[in-house]
Design a protein around this nucleic acid. Structure first.
Lengths: 278, 278
DNA sequence: GCTCTTGTATCGGATCGTAATACTCTTTAT
DNA sequence: ATAAAGAGTATTACGATCCGATACAAGAGC
């Protein structure tokens, strides 16, 4: 026991060349840096030179060199031989694709969403929650797409979306509140519900009704009705929602017409949902 | 089993003190292993224990421990606290999502595909080529989906798909042939064109027509018509295709009705296509 | 031409990761 | 019950791997 020599190992010399590490001996820092590089390639940095990568990822030139080289060899980046700029390859789609195909939740939910899509001819989404956000994992577009920028993998704050509220409404209120408390709550539109107490009321109402609505709380013109599917322990697993345009429905019409459909779909999905382990 | 690659790649210091095979000094092997772990989580291995990860990824227990720990800390894996099994998180979608959003090709093509989707009400795809394969990068489903298993990120052999042939037909024939030569050519269905010479004829015909067809060459019942978009250097950049079911169209009808549409869409996409650098 | 910036190659040495081992727990068999 | 086996977790000494400084090469702009 004790620790005699090993802290000598991770304490650098006193001349402080480096801040001390959290000392997580299992953490492989190279991997973290590699992902920092890969994740630098966002929509605003689609194509980057070596030095851009270095500055965006916060690495020095040597590290940028090594990690871009490594990622290129692994097939995740390609370098244009003339401009020397790097960009992502289709390889990046593979992980997401694997996730989608491997996820039993999605496999199970897909047929019900497709059915909804066919019968309503509106946009149908399946989302899961990741802490304070929801993530779109499956999407069936209608002919008149509202927001083409929303694709699989898109994230939004849970509190101002119908699926987010639907999932929060299936949790214990104190847990839901804790999530809201660590969210950056703001009014994206004039209609955004963004105060904790009001949100808790909205959550309670949604719990009672069995579905949630979000009318232009994040995007203008977007009317969304959602219901959450739950595991056998009554924990929210995912949510299905229908999104329609204000141009074609009033809020009341949309709610009246679609709420029972999403509730039914969510209930179907719930039954026989794979367990998060037993 | 045991070690296979390290000796081949790296000469210990058998004789001369100088390593004659410097291997690849810029390659960071930890990163490669991390991706081996992540990519182990495919549809047949959605949820794995530590030792399963070790065996599937080909690592020893310690390495599996370190990399699962690292990936968990980075948010790509989560471990069920009771079953101790690992699975992927929605984080995996982020890279693919970034790729989609960052790719100017996709941004540019999306509106044309959407237009096609609306006017035809059939399934529309955008694909790019990655060596011998095509990869689906954007997809608009019709009401009657043929193959729900095909999602963004799905790959197919180029030679037996309409988009693949369409792109090959815009290359120099000798380059196209070289790609075919390194493909594992096989007859997936009785209708698969799989002999090099026949394929080259098919490619030549497609080049002359400006579009390609694949009738049940990979999936039964799947009739597909595609055209390639080209860069200003006349290099194929991507392909757009329409896929319909044999149940609702004859081959002739499908070809007659849709070929001009995909050709027009591909031409529109081609104009002002971002350069692979200038 | 020259300078300045950016990409590429090299290399010694310390850091960081490796792999062996030991320790808990849980599961299974006797 | 109890033991034995197996799996997951924690720890540590060692040394190969990776780090990062530096030098070199190649363009770009003046």
């Amino acid at each position: 026991m004790t620790a005699h020599k090993d802290d000598a190992r991770r304490n650098k010399q006193a001349d402080g060349s480096r801040a001390e590490r959290p000392a997580d001996p299992l953490m492989v820092l190279s991997v973290e840096k590699a992902f920092r590089v890969l994740e630098s390639f966002d929509p605003t940095h689609a194509s980057m030179s070596l030095s851009q990568v270095a500055s965006v990822a916060g690495l020095d030139k040597s590290a940028a060199q090594r990690f871009t080289h490594t990622l290129e060899k692994l097939g995740y980046l390609r370098k244009d031989p003339v401009s020397k700029h790097f960009e992502m390859t289709t390889r990046a789609l593979k992980l997401g694709h694997n996730f989608t195909r491997a996820n039993p939740l999605i496999e199970r939910a897909a047929p019900y969403l497709m059915h909804l899509s066919k019968t309503t001819e509106e946009t149908i989404n399946l989302t899961v929650r990741d802490d304070t956000e929801i993530v779109f994992v499956l999407r069936f577009l209608s002919r008149q797409v509202l927001n083409p920028d929303v694709t699989i993998g898109t994230r939004m704050p849970a509190y101002c979306t119908a699926p987010g509220i639907a999932m929060l409404s299936r949790m214990r209120p104190e847990d839901a509140r804790r999530i809201l408390e660590r969210t950056d709550l703001r009014a994206y539109t004039p209609d955004t519900t963004w105060q904790i107490d009001t949100l808790m009321e909205k959550i309670a109402l949604s719990a009672a009704r069995g579905y949630a609505t979000a009318f232009e709380e994040f995007y203008h013109g977007d009317l969304s009705i959602a219901a959450a599917a739950v595991t056998s322990r009554q924990e929210p697993a995912c949510a299905v929602n229908i999104a329609v345009s204000r141009a074609r429905y009033t809020r009341q019409d949309a709610e009246k017409r679609f709420s029972s459909l999403v509730v039914a779909a969510a209930r179907s999905i719930s039954q026989g949902l794979p367990q998060p382990h037993g």
